[in-house]
C-alpha cells in the first residue's frame, strides 16, 4: 500500500488500508481481477490437490498408528506400504485390467466417434439435427438404468432378437461395450466440432489426389484435428479408468476375472482389519502413473501432429 502523501490527499490518512486498497482498485480494476484470479486458483488447487496430499500422508503412515488419525504429517513414517501392496495381492494385474478397459474403450470410441463426427460435422443430410439431438438425449440417461438389462444379457439370462449373445460377463467386453456407448456422445460432440472446422478445400484436395472420403478423414482431417482427437481420447481414457459402476459389477473380484483396481483396493479390507495405509498407497500407485502418462501423451500427440500448424 502506498502511503498517502501531500497536503491535498490528507483525508486519506483518516481512512484505513482497506479503504485505500478499494480506492486504488476502483481506479485500476485489473488489480481486482488479478486478486480474484489468485483467490480462485488457490482455492481450486487446494481442493483438488489436498486430498492427494493427505492420501500420501496416510500411505506413508505407520500401519498401526493410522487409526489414531493422520494430520498434515504422517503418523509415524513407514514407506513399506508401497511394497506391501504388491505382496498382499497382484495389484499390477488389477492395474493392467483397468488399463486394458480404458485403452480398448478409447480406441473403439475414437474410431466410431470419428466416423460419426465426420458425418455430423462435414456432411449435409436430412435429419442431421434430430440425430445429433438423439445422441445428446441418450447421454442424459443415467448409466445405472442400462445396468440390469445389460447384466442379464451379458450373463446369457435373456436372448436378444432370439439370439443368445456370447457371455461377456467377466471379460473386457462386458465393460468396454457399455462404457463405449456411455462415453460416445461426448466424443462425438468434441470431434464434430473439430472436424467441421477443417476447410473443405483440404478434403477436396485429398480426394482429387486420390483418397476416398474415408481416406481423406484418416489422412488429412484427423491429423489436423489432433488437439480435438487427443482431448476426446484423454477424456474417455480417464473416465473409463476412473469408472466404478460397470467395471466393478461386470467383472469378478479376482484379478484373473478381469477385476479392476477398485476390487484390488477393496481386498485390503479383511474381516478383522482395514488397512487404510495400503488402500491409500494403492490409490496413489493407480493414479500417478496414469496421470503422468496422460500428460506426456497429450503433449506428444498434440505437438507431433500439429507441427505444421494449420494456417489458411
Amino acid at each position: 500500500m502506498s502511503q498517502p502523501t501531500g497536503t491535498e490527499r490528507s483525508d486519506d490518512e483518516t481512512r484505513g488500508p482497506l479503504s485505500n486498497w478499494v480506492d486504488s482498485a476502483i481506479k485500476n480494476p485489473k488489480k481486482v481481477y488479478r486478486a480474484m484470479f489468485y483467490v480462485v486458483v488457490i482455492f481450486f488447487l487446494f481442493t483438488t490437490l489436498f486430498p492427494l496430499y493427505w492420501l500420501t500422508m496416510i500411505a506413508l503412515s505407520n500401519s498401526n498408528r493410522v487409526s489414531e488419525g493422520v494430520g498434515l504429517l504422517p503418523a509415524g513414517f513407514d514407506p513399506s506400504s508401497f511394497v506391501e501392496i504388491f505382496q498382499q495381492i497382484p495389484l499390477h494385474l488389477y492395474l493392467f485390467n483397468s488399463f486394458v478397459f480404458a485403452t480398448l474403450t478409447t480406441i473403439f470410441v475414437l474410431i466410431v466417434a470419428s466416423l460419426a463426427g465426420y458425418a455430423f460435422g462435414r456432411l449435409e443430410f436430412r435429419g442431421k439435427r434430430t440425430l445429433l439431438l438423439t445422441v445428446l438425449i441418450i447421454s442424459f440417461f443415467p448409466p445405472a438404468a442400462f445396468f440390469i438389462p445389460l447384466f442379464q444379457l451379458f450373463t446369457q439370462q435373456i436372448a436378444f432378437l432370439g439370439l443368445t449373445p456370447p457371455e461377456l460377463y467377466s471379460t473386457p467386453g462386458g465393460v468396454v461395450v457399455p462404457l463405449s456407448a456411455i462415453f460416445m456422445p461426448l466424443a462425438i460432440f468434441i470431434l464434430t466440432t473439430f472436424y467441421s472446422q477443417i476447410p473443405d478445400g483440404l478434403e477436396d484436395a485429398a480426394r482429387i489426389e486420390g483418397t476416398t472420403r474415408l481416406g481423406a478423414l484418416f489422412r488429412v482431417i484427423i491429423p489436423l484435428s489432433a488437439p480435438g482427437v487427443a482431448t476426446a481420447g484423454i477424456l474417455t481414457f480417464i473416465a473409463v479408468y476412473n469408472e466404478f459402476f460397470f467395471s466393478f459389477l461386470m467383472t469378478g473380484t479376482a484379478a484373473q476375472d478381469w477385476a479392476p483396481i477398485v476390487d484390488g483396493i477393496i481386498s485390503y479390507q479383511s474381516q478383522f482389519q482395514v488397512r487404510y495405509d495400503l488402500m491409500a498407497a494403492a490409490s496413489i500407485v493407480a493414479v500417478v502413473p496414469v496421470a503422468i502418462l496422460v500428460v506426456v501423451a497429450q503433449e506428444k500427440i498434440v505437438s507431433g501432429l500439429t507441427s505444421g500448424a494449420l494456417k489458411e
Binding site: 476447410p199 478445400g201 483440404l202 477436396d204 484436395a205 485429398a206 482429387i208 489426389e209 488429412v220 491429423p223 489436423l224 501432429l305 500439429t306 507441427s307 505444421g308 500448424a309 494449420l310 494456417k311 489458411e312
Partner: peptide
C-alpha cells in the same frame, strides 16, 4: 488434378 483458390496444401 486440381489447383484450388485457397491453395489447400496439407499443413501437416
Amino acid at each position: 488434378a486440381m489447383v484450388f483458390q485457397n491453395i489447400a496444401l496439407f499443413p501437416h
